[in-house]
Design a protein around this nucleic acid. Sequence first.
DNA 1: AGCAATATCTACATGATTGTCAATAGCGAC
DNA 2: GTCGCTATTGACAATCATGTAGATATTGCT
Lengths: 213, 213
Amino acid sequence: MPGKTNHKGAPPPRRRRTALEARTAILDAAERRLVESGPAAIRLQEVAKDVGVSHPTVLHHFGSREGLVEAVVHRALDSVQAELLEAVRSSRDSPNEAEVLLESVFDALARRGHARAFLWLVLSGYASDVEALRVRAVAEAVHEARRQRRAGKKRMPPFEDTYFTVLLPALALLSLSIAGGLMGVGDDESAPLGPRRFRAWLGRLIHEHLEHG
Amino acid sequence: MPGKTNHKGAPPPRRRRTALEARTAILDAAERRLVESGPAAIRLQEVAKDVGVSHPTVLHHFGSREGLVEAVVHRALDSVQAELLEAVRSSRDSPNEAEVLLESVFDALARRGHARAFLWLVLSGYASDVEALRVRAVAEAVHEARRQRRAGKKRMPPFEDTYFTVLLPALALLSLSIAGGLMGVGDDESAPLGPRRFRAWLGRLIHEHLEHG
DNA sequence: AGCAATATCTACATGATTGTCAATAGCGAC
DNA sequence: GTCGCTATTGACAATCATGTAGATATTGCT
């Protein structure tokens, strides 16, 4: 092997990051594996290789594998929750509330594989105590808006109806983000029976139901 | 240790099952672990211990760990598909089609943790080519029934509407069986805002939409 | 430049997991 | 009863994953 006779020659140069940079890079790599293969598939050596460090470096920053997994789980759940809250907030007071909310929630779930990560964590038992999806709180806000819009008109439906009307798209979008392809809704956003058409249809259904239920 | 001085004494008696019995018992144990913790968590030693055999016995019957996993995955997917088809078939021609279909599909998904197993397999990439949920076929049958029921009355909605109307509860039920608790719908079937109420509500919504959409 | 702090590395230890092999023993057939 | 088939087993090998220890290099500070 001419040219690279490193048989005990100079050790490779080291890149020294700040602790924060290193932690962030490691968390990013671990999160990619979380989204792709779940928390149980997070391996120290593979994460280390992704980042370009040796695996004891990962242990140095997170103490143990469990420490790393907890950190990445915590960060992912916080991220999902924050994006969902932002999605709900940003679509409030918009004219076609339901459609916009649906699109922004779907965006939040699809972006960076958040829906996959969330379902991995639910199945793996990591999200048992999390309140990532405050469906109840959203439903209460929607119910109040609905009541005001109906002031004096037809009789108001019970809270149950509003609650389930909010819950339904939440459940549907979650499944859609990971199992849509298996149920005939491809990944092609612009397909005739594709996910975009479905979301639009669902938005109309919800809107219609909330208005003239 | 008085009474059990088995320090190289008689080896424990062996129970010899037929190959089919052994395979079935092993697959049952492996499937329990699949439902609980996913395909990646199937360990030869643990499955063997559950059945009460040594792990080389498992290897003898399935060749390799991959062989075992493939066998249990195959059996689980076949089972889900069969139960879903049966659910669809049994609810056909019933007066309140939508509600009955919803209940039977939910039963099929909840029973023995089929929904969990299915989602594990989808996330793990094992169900990529499976057509477990023939939503399209069901939708076509429903569409035809809808057309006949509407003969000569109002104008017929497009197929897209029927298709999405079938797809929606499928997606919702899937999520509901694993994430219901996290979204406020507890596991208590008889709770005021519980899963039974939700399914009933969803059944009415679907029925209403299909009849007077 | 010199120094302290610490991010990083190599090498090793340890346990878990899959897989191999030869020997054993249960069960049906004759 | 005994004989053959094979389900079953204990012992071992090989690999992988996590974790430890000590040495080293890089960076910021004075």
